[in-house]
Amino acid sequence: MKVTVIGGSGFVGTRLIEKLLLENSIEIVNIDKKQSESYISLTQIGDVCDVAGLTSGLRGADVVVLLAAEHRDDVSPTSLYYDVNVQGIKNVLEAMEANGCKHIIFTSSVAVYGLDKENPDEQLPADPFNHYGKSKWQAEEVLQEWSKQHSDWTISIVRPTVIFGEGNRGNVWNLLNQIASGKFMMIGPGTNRKSMAYVGNIVAFIQFLVENKTVGLEVYNYVDKPDFTTNDLVYHTGKVLNKKIPTRRIPYWLGMLGGYGFDVLAWATRKKLPISSVRVKKFCAVTQFDSSKAMGSGFTPPFTMEEGLRRTLKSEFGK
């Protein structure tokens, strides 16, 4: 089986390739606009905006795993979300059809649900609040329409929650780093639950979908349970690292006021700053999602949530 990963040079893609390489029956190609630091020989430089390049790169592919996306919350201009995330999926599908490849796994996002939804499952109507979520939902709509005209294709849409793990420098790492350093400031009461996914589990689930082909379109949330509150994360960080974590608290309204202030400063200086009103809102929001469909598919996560968090904290902050 030849698996082509598009956008595999990043955090999740590198771990996915590492896992797939353990299977002797799988041949792997990575197409990315950035060279992979870990798998140079497997990587072809390419872009989802280049149909001709994709058509050439997907020659002989049996399965496509599409990870490439514009995902930061401060991308400028905002049209890039739609150029990459929406037009990109159209280009990939065109290149796949030209090569007779009929199996795609697309990583979307729980951002399609919007904020503060009560444990949504895959049936909840989309309600994205930002350009990233809107562009991911539009990409899903492209796949839905494609599936109606291509009933013999296998199309899996995976909506992961925020992903963390060893070597990642995303939002969860920033939060854990602040907690571990003792510089953490809690905005609000800290009782909002945060669904998260450990990288070792999400790549195992993608491998499961690669190897278990079912014709048709399926959508899966991916979340590792249990859902921790921000207070839980402070507690577990202190326990794993064997240190007392001081926590300063400020009310939500004051945190949002500060976020808007940083928005103005970022606009005035034309610089990307680590704090914004969107990030404060996301930090304080309930991000809890139902993952019973994925867990009822026959897949068993290789790591518990506690083990994933322990491995990450030990690797990143246990020195």
Rank of each mutant, 00 (worst) to 15 (best):
24 N>Y: 07
67 L>V: 01
69 A>T: 09
37 E>K: 15
59 R>M: 09
50 D>R: 04
46 G>K: 05
36 S>L: 01
28 I>M: 12
74 D>P: 00
61 A>L: 03
14 T>A: 11
71 H>L: 00
30 N>E: 07
19 K>A: 13
75 V>I: 12
58 L>H: 09
14 T>F: 07
17 I>K: 12
24 N>M: 07
29 V>R: 14
27 E>D: 14
65 V>G: 08
40 I>A: 06
23 E>K: 11
53 G>A: 01
23 E>C: 09
19 K>S: 14
19 K>D: 14
72 R>L: 03
19 K>L: 15
30 N>D: 12
25 S>L: 05
72 R>F: 00
32 D>Q: 09
24 N>I: 05
22 L>C: 14
70 E>S: 14
71 H>S: 08
28 I>Q: 13
28 I>T: 13
54 L>A: 05
23 E>N: 13
22 L>V: 12
45 I>E: 02
59 R>Q: 13
68 A>S: 14
39 Y>E: 00
58 L>I: 08
25 S>Y: 10
67 L>G: 03
47 D>F: 04
50 D>P: 02
17 I>A: 14
69 A>Y: 03
15 R>V: 12
23 E>F: 11
39 Y>P: 01
17 I>V: 15
35 Q>M: 07
32 D>C: 07
49 C>N: 10
58 L>E: 05
38 S>H: 05
20 L>H: 11
14 T>N: 13
37 E>G: 14
61 A>Q: 06
63 V>M: 05
45 I>A: 02
26 I>N: 14
61 A>H: 06
63 V>I: 10
48 V>T: 06
27 E>P: 07
13 G>Q: 13
44 Q>H: 08
53 G>P: 05
26 I>G: 15
20 L>R: 11
63 V>Q: 03
25 S>P: 09
57 G>N: 02
35 Q>F: 00
57 G>F: 01
73 D>R: 10
52 A>S: 10
40 I>F: 02
22 L>Q: 15
48 V>F: 00
56 S>Y: 06
25 S>M: 06
38 S>E: 04
72 R>Q: 08
52 A>W: 00
39 Y>M: 01
67 L>K: 05
22 L>I: 11
37 E>N: 12
13 G>T: 12
50 D>A: 01
17 I>S: 13
14 T>M: 07
40 I>K: 10
71 H>Q: 04
26 I>W: 12
31 I>H: 09
56 S>N: 11
50 D>H: 02
13 G>L: 12
33 K>C: 03
32 D>M: 05
25 S>E: 13
41 S>M: 00
45 I>P: 03
30 N>W: 03
35 Q>Y: 00
64 V>W: 05
66 L>M: 09
25 S>D: 14
50 D>N: 11
47 D>A: 05
46 G>D: 06
19 K>R: 15
40 I>Q: 07
50 D>V: 02
75 V>F: 01
51 V>T: 08
71 H>W: 02
65 V>S: 06
40 I>T: 06
39 Y>D: 01
64 V>L: 04
64 V>Y: 06
